[in-house]
Design a binder for these strands. Sequence first.
DNA 1: CTTTTTGCAAAGCGTTTGCATTGAA
DNA 2: TTCAATGCAAACGCTTTGCAAAAAG
Lengths: 148, 148
Amino acid sequence: MQLKKTQECLDSFIEKCKSHNLKITPQRCAIYKEIFKSLEHPSAEDVFNAIHKDYPNISYDTVNRTLLTFADIGLVDIVRSSSGPRRFDPNTESHHHIYCVNCGEIFDFYNEDYDNLEVPGNIRDNYDIISKRVVLKGVCKKCKKSMS
Amino acid sequence: MQLKKTQECLDSFIEKCKSHNLKITPQRCAIYKEIFKSLEHPSAEDVFNAIHKDYPNISYDTVNRTLLTFADIGLVDIVRSSSGPRRFDPNTESHHHIYCVNCGEIFDFYNEDYDNLEVPGNIRDNYDIISKRVVLKGVCKKCKKSMS
DNA sequence: CTTTTTGCAAAGCGTTTGCATTGAA
DNA sequence: TTCAATGCAAACGCTTTGCAAAAAG
């Protein structure tokens, strides 16, 4: 079951590459598999470290460039952050973020009401809207404890 | 009227500094005045360039460090971005963002419905919420024209 | 065989740090 | 007079680029 899902994912990945004239390289496959295993928002370095065990020869550059390529073709999103390295989000479904101002951790959550938010008329007139996201800022339980 | 407002702002700025044991330096005042004149989301360099005309001796570092200090005491926000230099947001009122994926420009807008968004129960249970922001992604009119 | 991709190295850009000097309180 | 803030310069971290070698189609 899990295997089948993985295979399905890989197939759709291969399709996506072909439709963008990207070659299927072992590196790209490894990176693809890795980012869809993690539910976090990994940086290029995170991905590199995870992959490096199995692919000792892969270079950091390739990981970074591949992730940017993936972002280009819509396979991953780039998470906006205020500092530190760029983070990638393998979850391109409509979702929302809650992030802890103390530890900086970002968690995804899903909420239909948020997905269906009305876009104000004056914005709609001036923009073609691509996506809507609610970003909540707060302090997570763990940090709240350690702060007190 | 405008002058009075400026003076009021400056007074509240001085209060804020005092309450955080920050000294009132001409540099800080200049930076404060500058960022509240601009309605954009300036980077440290933008602010530096704007100020440099009137204060040729101010250093880029001071501008950058001061803006970070201002962020610490809640005088400005830091805008999350996916690339390029960090941008500061002098508007700490509740507001929302629409940003153009093509030119990267971010515009503020206000919307009461968005301000009053309900926070899902499971999030509320695990976080102390500090703020809510809706981030819309889209393509602005200008870019749409130049793309066609 | 052609064209893209990779890996490496260097350059680039923005941010951060250390420290002597300056200036606010 | 004291301690924080400034300005400068160097260090740092992450990102981007150029290019020769390797690999995909």
